[in-house]
Amino acid sequence: MSETSASLLDRLRDNPDEESWRQLVEIYTPLIRGWLRRHLQPSADTDDLIQDVLTVVVRRIREFHREPRVGAFRRWLKTITINCLRDFWKSRRNKPRATGNSDFLEVLEQLADPGSQLSQLWDQEHDKHVTHQLLELIRTQFEETTWQAFQRVALDGIPADEVARELGVTVNVVFISKSRVLSKLRQVGAGLLE
């Protein structure tokens, strides 16, 4: 994996290469698919829809501006998804259906409303999924001990002393490990995470 210090978003916008596209697709495909699966009737068109969404992201990423507001990217992605779904709905004679009793367009409407429960769920899922994927992405760049220390202290919430004992390193090393991984994560995920 390339060890560029630029964030994935910046690379996609300014200097898109194979690697960054691949990462984008890998990170977002399962997220969008999972979402479609849960809220729409399964359909052979799911792949086409995901493709539509990602191609729009590809085409318009230069228009996306990072904002100081939290969640700008996930909102942007949500808007694109909603638009793609709307177009899709319009283009179909056999209208796609939502799961349960919900109406397809109603689901879209709910999703468009930032205050709706569905919207909040979208945000949560996005954050969970993307952070997880980004962690996987940067993992190879660290020594196993560094990663372990980070994992135990930051993710598992184990006190640093205990982690140090567990791994046979000093507390200093534990804190440095944690800081390094988080720093890398912020770097790579800048714009996507906040």
Binding site: P30, L31, G34, R37, H39, T99, T131, H132, L135, L185
Partner: peptide
């Protein structure tokens, strides 16, 4: 957020590893 992500990334949900039935209430 990382803690939530690490413990609660809904992999079965997101990557459709397992067959699923529609869960009442929209999943």
């Amino acid at each position: 957020r990382l803690r939530t992500a690490n413990t609660s990334v809904d992999e079965t949900l997101l990557t459709d590893v397992q067959p699923r039935v529609a869960v009442p209430g929209g999943g």
